[in-house]
């Protein structure tokens, strides 16, 4: 797989911008960015999806604007400018969610406003959008935020299934299931994320080991050829 990535031409660069955020550089599981909303609003799968969509809107819009203005923003004031651009879009999202569903707005509470300080968004503005074209920045924003939403959903669904016995409000088990209340509580957020990270670490290690073995056997083949 690694060699495929190396052989890619410049034409396929844009697909790479998009795919990268989904898995290889997943903002939550690999980069461990934007932890506060990840832990705070994932006590049900629905909240997690709503938060993911709100972040998607803000990230794509802020990436677009930052990328459009990248020639006009001087280096000294860039962080403040980025934060103000992000804050503008977060205000828009805040009012939008309140207009669509008051219940959802109450459930997410201050965490909608707190999207401003999500390190992921500022990080993408600084590391990607301020250096690349608008099209690529939009793709990068889409990929990263879909990866983020995916991670939120992973946590939210596990916590809702174990802590409440439901998924997206639908009852999964009949009355026999005793809910693990701790999973809905704050500590459950920490445990679930720790569990996912463990899984990803384990998979990552296995991949590295497989690659090592493959390169070992390649080396042996090479030696045989020379012999």
């Amino acid at each position: 797989m690694a060699s495929d990535a190396d052989n890619r031409g410049a034409g396929e660069q844009s697909t790479d911008d998009f795919i990268r955020g989904l898995w290889k550089e997943n903002p939550v599981f690999v980069q461990v960015l934007g932890m506060c909303p990840v832990l705070a609003v994932t006590n049900s799968a629905m909240n997690a999806i709503a938060m993911g969509l709100a972040t998607l809107f803000v990230l794509v819009m802020s990436n677009t604007v930052v990328s459009l203005l990248r020639r006009f923003i001087t280096k000294q004031v860039r962080i403040v400018t980025f934060i103000l651009i992000i804050a503008t879009f977060v205000t828009v999202v805040d009012y939008l969610i309140a207009a669509i569903s008051i219940d959802l707005h109450k459930a997410l509470g201050a965490f909608i406003s707190l999207i401003v300080v999500n390190c992921l968004i500022l990080g993408r503005a600084e590391a990607f959008a301020s250096k690349n074209t608008v099209f690529r920045s939009i793709l990068d924003g889409l990929g990263m935020s879909i990866g983020f939403a995916f991670a939120l959903f992973c946590l939210g669904s596990v916590r809702e299934i174990l802590g409440n016995g439901t998924l997206l409000g639908a009852n999964l088990f009949h009355d026999e299931f005793q809910p693990w209340v701790v999973m809905i509580l704050p500590s459950g957020g920490f445990f679930t994320l720790a569990g996912w990270l463990l899984l990803f670490n384990k998979l990552g290690q296995r991949k590295v080991r497989a690659q090592l073995q493959r390169s070992d056997s390649d080396a042996e083949l090479g030696e045989e050829k020379f012999a």
């Binding site: 920490f190 445990f191 994320l193 720790a194 990270l197 670490n201 290690q205």
Partner: peptide, 13 residues
Amino acid sequence: VIRGTALTLMIAG
């Protein structure tokens, strides 16, 4: 496997 963030998160829990 457990070293790093995963361990810290468990203690936090």
